[in-house]
Computed example of a mutant assay.
Amino acid sequence: MIRIELDEASLGATRIAISPLWDAFCSLHLAMPHRHPSRPYEEWVVRAREVLREDDRTHPLRLLIDGPHQFPDFMLPRPVGATAVETELNAVRTTPADVVRAGIAEHYAGLEDHPYVRPYLADPEGACAELADAYAAYWEGAMAAHWPVMRRLVEDEVLIRARTFATEGIDALFTGLESRAKWQPPVLELTKHIDAEYRAGERRLLLVPLVFAEGCRLYSTDDPEVLTVSFQARGAGALRERPAERADSGDRLGLLLGRGRASVLRQLGGPLTTAGIADRLGLAPSTVSEHLSALAEADVVTRHRIGRSVYYQLTDTGRALLALLSGEDVLRAVS
């Protein structure tokens, strides 16, 4: 269990940021041979394992995963909110030699001769360049095709969480974070196989939504200004090539509304955009938009704008309809 004590300054400065590289790193853990990914990742993992097995450029990543559990931030830089992985890869590639040596000294004292550590001391610039190339090869083979959908999922998550924080406060933000995070003010507890305690001090908290957070829990405490924690973004089912169809038998909601409109309604466990729903269902955005317009006219869903995006959410009528005809426990509003 990881326990992070947060003071008022840290909580007040909480931010949320996207990181394609953090998502890629977590997915590496999920692609390990001993792992049995849950359904959303089953199709993806076949290709990811093939890339790791057959592309020799990924060797530094395999060493990273098999190496010590704790590692310096330069191997996985703090997210800066970039939506292009190239920005983060450039940060890895251009790490100054003194930063590499300081990170090795802090995290790998006594392990200088470890085959995983030795290259970073012998040739810091070269080792960082090889690590960046390994990330790039893995990204190209296993992640790039999925990133447009993943990006939309995490961008939706950032907007929804930011709205929750702004309108309901930090308690609401943490309470709805995910099952592996527990908020007992002023301590945030993270389920992990190691035990550690940290005090944020004057550092601000940075939350990072990840589609592949099932792979591992990430947290970073090296930065003197920022304490970073990852969490699971919703909608990982969009990674499936084809969403699972519900059986027609007994689908009273589908019989009443039509299968397409019913499937759209079932996605609205939390606020989503038209494009976000389309990603999850594998439908054209225009088709989803047509269904949403009809549902909004029937007062089953409501719409609200955040920035340039329009989000749809179940009304009380919509939640009651799902509960009565689908047996789904959605009567409580979702922030």
Rank of each mutant, 00 (worst) to 15 (best):
88 E>M: 07
268 L>P: 00
253 L>V: 10
242 R>W: 09
82 A>P: 05
71 F>K: 08
181 A>L: 15
147 W>N: 00
66 D>C: 04
258 G>W: 06
22 W>I: 05
173 L>M: 01
122 A>Y: 11
333 A>Y: 08
54 E>M: 14
296 A>W: 00
325 L>R: 04
203 R>S: 01
127 A>Y: 14
199 R>G: 14
160 I>D: 10
110 G>L: 11
210 L>M: 13
94 T>Y: 05
219 Y>S: 11
148 P>E: 02
32 M>C: 04
76 L>N: 08
293 S>T: 10
153 L>G: 12
192 K>C: 06
307 G>M: 01
171 D>T: 01
254 G>K: 08
30 L>S: 05
5 E>C: 03
326 S>L: 04
190 L>F: 11
12 G>M: 06
305 R>N: 11
329 D>G: 03
54 E>F: 08
181 A>N: 08
8 E>V: 15
215 G>S: 07
326 S>R: 11
277 I>Y: 00
55 D>G: 06
12 G>V: 02
79 P>F: 13
83 T>S: 15
19 S>W: 02
332 R>I: 08
165 F>P: 03
320 A>S: 14
84 A>T: 11
249 S>T: 13
293 S>G: 12
196 A>M: 06
311 Y>W: 08
182 K>P: 00
107 H>R: 07
188 L>R: 01
17 A>H: 12
231 F>K: 02
258 G>L: 01
36 H>E: 13
195 D>Q: 07
57 R>D: 00
283 L>D: 10
240 R>K: 13
314 L>C: 04
171 D>W: 01
202 E>T: 14
300 V>P: 04
167 T>A: 10
207 L>I: 03
284 A>M: 10
107 H>I: 12
265 L>V: 06
315 T>E: 03
13 A>P: 04
180 R>L: 07
137 A>H: 09
317 T>Y: 11
61 L>F: 00
288 V>H: 06
209 P>R: 02
117 V>N: 05
308 R>H: 13
69 H>Q: 12
147 W>H: 12
192 K>E: 14
158 V>F: 11
228 T>P: 02
265 L>R: 05
281 L>A: 13
296 A>P: 00
178 E>N: 12
289 S>A: 15
278 A>P: 10
258 G>R: 02
194 I>Y: 15
235 G>D: 00
211 V>P: 11
136 A>Q: 13
192 K>M: 07
198 Y>P: 01
64 L>T: 03
96 P>Q: 04
160 I>K: 14
325 L>H: 03
225 E>Q: 09
328 E>D: 02
136 A>M: 09
218 L>S: 14
